[in-house]
């Protein structure tokens, strides 16, 4: 489904991604972790071309992302993305946030889009908040709306870029619960996160990045059981200490 081949990216002379190669198969949940500045957020943003890259190629459902001839809006509409800071549109109500792209990109009618939005809002437990503005919701609630908004486009895969990093601790679980449920339904997911509990629960594979390189790319059991690289061992010991 997502095929990343030898992707490198530079900011000026600084190389942020070094020959990254990996793949996410249909229905697979892959967690990407690593210390901050390791390039994991950059990598996930290259998948739907929010970040350009200079070398290599990424295929999403067979479509080359780096090809200038690729219709990027069309491709992005099929790949859901959830951001660290939610990024709901503050000038629109929750209902309008959910309907906007359905109407403008997929060409759905306003009523159909609202109905679909409401259904998804109900699914993340926020139907009662449909008429509110994002600023009136808590961080956890906003992130659940953001997930519903991404799902409203009927994506073939979902990208999560540190979805719980900006949340207060008591709100992390309500977001993770939604993600776990999604994973169990068979959604193809690529998730940048430090939530190792989530990784243990639903991930099929774990990718460990450091200094722009994919250091480990292993099945979940292998990664937590016997990490091969020294750097992964160190990282795990640091974040699993408590």
């Amino acid at each position: 489904m997502i095929d990343i081949r030898d992707v490198s990216k530079w900011y000026g002379t600084f190389q942020v991604l070094k020959d990254c190669t990996t793949a996410v198969r249909k229905g697979e949940v892959v967690v990407v972790c690593g210390p901050s500045g390791s390039g994991k957020s950059t990598l996930i943003k290259t998948v739907n071309a929010l970040e350009p890259f200079q070398k290599g190629e990424i295929f999403v459902n067979g479509i080359p992302v780096g090809d200038p001839k690729t219709d990027l809006p069309k491709l992005r509409a099929k790949v859901g993305m959830v951001f660290q800071h939610f990024e709901l549109f503050p000038h629109l109500t929750i209902t309008e946030n959910l309907a906007l792209a359905q109407v403008k990109v997929l060409g759905r009618g306003r009523d159909e889009a609202n109905e679909r939005g409401l259904k998804l809002l109900d699914r993340v437990g926020l139907k009662a908040h449909a008429a509110k503005y994002p600023g009136q919701l808590s961080g956890g609630q906003q992130q659940r709306v953001a997930i519903a908004r991404a799902l409203s486009m009927d994506p073939i895969a979902m990208l999560f870029d540190e979805p719980t990093s900006a949340l207060d601790p008591e709100m992390i679980n309500e977001v993770l619960d939604v993600m776990v449920e999604l994973a169990r339904e068979g959604m193809t997911m690529m998730v940048v996160t430090h939530e190792m509990g989530f990784a243990r629960k639903v991930a099929h594979r774990v990718i460990f990045m450091d200094n722009g390189e994919i250091v480990e790319d292993a099945a979940k059991e292998d990664f937590f059981g016997k990490p091969r690289s020294e750097r992964a061992v160190q990282f795990l010991s640091k974040i699993l200490q408590h």
Partner: peptide
């Protein structure tokens, strides 16, 4: 307007023109 708003809009499949007209300029 934070860059993230533009990213979010693009990620939903909106074009540059739609992103400006519907997301960035109103704010």
């Amino acid at each position: 307007i934070p860059k993230g708003q533009v990213y979010a809009s693009y990620a939903l499949g909106l074009t540059y023109g739609q992103t400006m007209r519907l997301v960035v300029l109103p704010q």
